[in-house]
């Protein structure tokens, strides 16, 4: 009796349909996989690695790949990870006149071909110095401290350009995105403790990254493939608590940066409040400036607040600064504008 029942399930139309749908999905997946590999290539992302000597996240050295964005590939760029694990055509070696540019995805510029990378724009405008980019997506201001320590020790630099944007300050205290890839500060009263980054890449995430289909969906449909210890959004309460500690964190990080080398000079590029500019609100300073203003008179710190520059530029040309509506990274003309300002206000001085 039981056997009959089981066999009737397997011969039923519902079972046949389940197989049909499952087969359809498998076939669809295979077709999509080929499609997103060869016809509309999905983005490739470089493998990450943790340099445990300096607690610095970078990429596995010597990789190459293609970055694409947009469902019909509105943007496409080649990336080349160099001998040191950074997105740069240049081989990084110790030498004189090196100026490191430290930052997150704004410095990593995976979305540009090498000729338009920030370090190359600097290089074109100032052939005297050697510009090295040290950008890694999702890095925070606290992580820049570790990167700076690494660049000073490895490349013996005397100055550095550090790009401050989006969530750099708050993420020095708490994670807003998924993976704890940054060194962070644990602040309790006046006591500040550095918490090193923990390497954790969930095996499922690693596995999924091998499939072009998933990478395509991840990039173009804003899917968050967060698994394991992922915490995508912190509650407002946690963010509010972290907000109160931002000034303390900035002071600590800059003081520690200045301690790395006695004659080290730092240039902070502070991104403007672009939304306010588009709305026509005239602001004297960017939102980051108040946290850095204590160092305004420090001769080893140069603050390049972009608020005024971008505001004037927008009023004159009415051109926005973003790559696209959905990608808030700076576009190429904005990068060029920033490079010219930095050379004039920092490098030449």
């Amino acid at each position: 009796m039981r056997v009959t029942k089981v066999s009737s399930i397997f011969s039923s139309d519902l079972f046949k349909y389940t197989i049909y749908v499952a087969g359809l999905f498998i076939l669809l997946f295979l077709v999509l996989e080929c499609f997103f590999r060869w016809i509309v290539p999905a983005p490739e992302f470089p493998e990450r690695a943790l340099d445990t000597t300096y607690d610095v996240y970078k990429f596995e050295p010597n990789q190459e790949g293609l970055y694409t964005r947009g469902r019909l590939i509105e943007a496409k760029a080649e990336w080349i990870i160099n001998n040191e694990g950074w997105n740069s055509e240049k081989e990084y070696v110790k030498g004189a006149h090196i100026i490191p540019i430290i930052g997150d995805s704004y410095v990593q510029t995976l979305f540009f071909n090498p000729e338009n990378h920030l370090y190359n724009l600097f290089q074109e405008a100032d052939p005297v110095h050697d510009y090295y980019a040290f950008g890694i997506q999702g890095a925070s201001l606290s992580q820049y401290l570790n990167i700076l320590k690494y660049t000073v020790t490895q490349f013996d630099v005397d100055s550095a350009i550090i790009v401050i944007d989006e969530k750099d300050i708050i993420e020095s205290i708490t994670n807003l995105s998924s993976m704890p890839r940054n060194m962070q500060l644990k602040i309790k009263g006046d006591e500040i403790q550095e918490v090193p980054p923990t390497y954790f890449e969930h095996p499922l995430r690693q596995f999924i990254k091998n499939f072009a289909t998933f990478r395509y969906f991840y990039m173009n449909f804003e899917f968050q493939l967060d698994v394991g210890n992922a915490k995508v959004h912190k509650s407002k309460k946690v963010i509010k608590k972290a907000d109160g500690k931002k000034q303390q964190a900035v002071n600590y990080i800059i003081d520690e940066m200045l301690k790395i080398k006695p004659d080290l000079v730092l240039c902070f590029i502070l991104d403007a409040d672009r939304k306010a500019i588009y709305k026509g609100e005239e602001k004297e300073n960017s939102d980051y400036y108040p946290y850095f203003k204590n160092y305004h008179d420090n001769e080893r710190v140069v603050l390049l607040d972009l608020q005024d520059t971008l505001q004037n530029h927008y009023q004159k040309y009415q051109q926005k600064f973003e790559l696209s509506e959905s990608d808030h990274h700076w576009n190429l003309p904005t990068y060029k504008l920033i490079v010219n300002k930095t050379i004039a206000d920092f490098v030449e001085k």
């Binding site: 359809l24 076939l27 669809l28 077709v31 999509l32 499609f35 509309v40 469902r71 019909l72 449909f221």
Partner: peptide, 18 residues
């Protein structure tokens, strides 16, 4: 029919308004 389904789904992915 299967070709039709797969081609339609690919069009949904590439050109759909989401």
């Amino acid at each position: 029919q299967i070709l039709f389904l797969i081609a339609t789904i690919i069009q949904l992915i590439l050109f759909g308004y989401y």
